[in-house]
Amino acid sequence: MSSPIFALDGVGVSYGKNTALARVDLTVEPGERIAIIGPSGAGKSTLIGVLNGTVAATSGEVTALGCDYRRAPAREIRKSQRRVGTIHQRFDLVEQLRTVHNVNAGRLGSWPFWKAALSLLLPRDVQRVRAALDRVGIGDKLHHRTGDLSGGEQQRVAIARVLVQDPVMILADEPVASIDPARGREIMSLLLELSAEAGVTLLACLHDVDMALGSFERVVGLRAGQIAFDKKRADLTDDEVDALYAFERATEPR
């Protein structure tokens, strides 16, 4: 596993005249734990989208797990996507479904359609789902309707969904932004624990700078769609972090 998981080379994304990302170079090696920080609108979510293949780069090269997103056939892309799990800010769960189905949704990439359909009637692989829910601490919620769970519990369901997907890489887009700070810290340490346990690479976008600086070895600063810095935590100075948010702070008080 010496080849990088992700290699972005001069990637740009623009919507009409608006540029969301410009000339981004980023390499992610196996086992790394990276935090992406930056003011809102800096392009963090777009970057996650480029990495998991939901946002198409308008320029540059994107290679994920050895697969060229811009040229590979759709089947190959899906194969890579299957090995990348994403946790979203707003959970992206189906509230009408029971927890077991929402967790199993992580397996859809490896299940044939008939098995997916059958599982909605007779849940398949329940043991594996239960183990994942136990691991995130809500094993008793297996048959609850997801919409009835609290925000923190729903985020745990989303993590369990990624766990059963068995990815080599977890992307987290503001994983704790919509739950209270105490729950947020619990969830964050759970994510770090899980990635360490399974040797899974972790890349998280965080609005909370202290959390990023406190727990990640590598920090990437993003500003106005461009990479401002990409350093080991130890080499990063407070001035650099302040500069990243400088413009935002200067305009805020008005």
Binding site: R82, R83, H88, D92, G106, L108
Partner: peptide, 11 residues
């Protein structure tokens, strides 16, 4: 939710 599943490689 649909986009999230497609992103995870589902058909």
């Amino acid at each position: 939710p649909y986009t999230a599943l497609v992103a995870a490689g589902s058909s």
